[in-house]
């Protein structure tokens, strides 16, 4: 289903992150005329194109969504680039995550590095990527009281997601460690190391 989001926006319901990523890639590859923003979410892709014929755009987006939907579903897209993030696992919440999960701190590290994650979408702050596919054992609620400042490069978990704080900001995610890899740099092109669909693996530094 495709919903109108104002005069210039189409909100495509994909129902799955995987289809969001495939439609995002297809739209980015083709860039229909006038499209300014393509914003994938867990179950949607927003397409914003001011000043173009919305009926024509709708027809094209419907076609692309149908084509991608028809493709067989199949886990992480091996064609997506894989980025490896070295982590020093000395985070302030490593022990609390271990306690909540009922496992040792070493096993938290093993489970955090043991799976390939996928960049779901970005939001909350520039360059802040929600990394999906976290080992369910590591799912923990956010802190009751968020920290007023979390340093850039902090590697954290909350709910079913992991993340690397792109810049210093307040935050309620549980800190497992830190990385020296810069995931956000306004002077770089593109400024974000992560983009939706990309594969990510953490490894002990």
């Amino acid at each position: 289903m495709i919903r109108a989001a104002g005069e210039h926006g189409l909100l495509v319901e994909t129902g799955s992150l995987e289809l969001s990523h495939r439609l995002d890639a297809a739209l980015r590859a083709e860039r229909p005329e006038g499209v300014v923003e393509i914003v994938p979410g867990p179950e949607t892709v927003l397409v914003v194109a001011p000043g173009v014929d919305q009926a024509r755009l709708l027809a094209r987006v419907e076609e692309l969504a149908g084509r991608e939907r028809a493709k067989a579903a199949g886990g992480a897209d091996e064609e997506q680039p894989l980025v490896t993030i070295p982590v020093v696992y000395d985070g302030a919440d490593l022990d609390s995550v271990a306690a909540l999960a009922g496992i040792s701190a070493d096993e938290v590290v093993a489970r955090h590095t043991g799976r390939e994650l996928v960049v779901g979408w970005l939001g909350f702050a520039p360059g802040f990527a929600y990394l999906t596919g976290l080992d369910p054992v590591l799912e923990t609620p956010r802190l009751d009281t968020p920290r007023t400042s979390v340093p850039a490069g902090s590697v954290a978990v909350a709910g079913p997601y992991s993340a690397v704080y792109p810049s210093a900001s307040p935050g309620g995610w549980r800190l497992l460690g830190r990385t020296a890899t810069r995931v956000w740099d306004v002077t770089a092109e593109p400024p974000s190391l992560f983009r939706p669909g990309m594969r990510v693996r953490f490894e002990p530094a």
């Binding site: 210039h8 923003e37 979408w121």
Partner: peptide, 10 residues
């Protein structure tokens, strides 16, 4: 909702 893209004027 699962997080989704927002437009100006929403």
């Amino acid at each position: 909702l699962p997080s989704e893209g927002m437009v100006t004027g929403a």
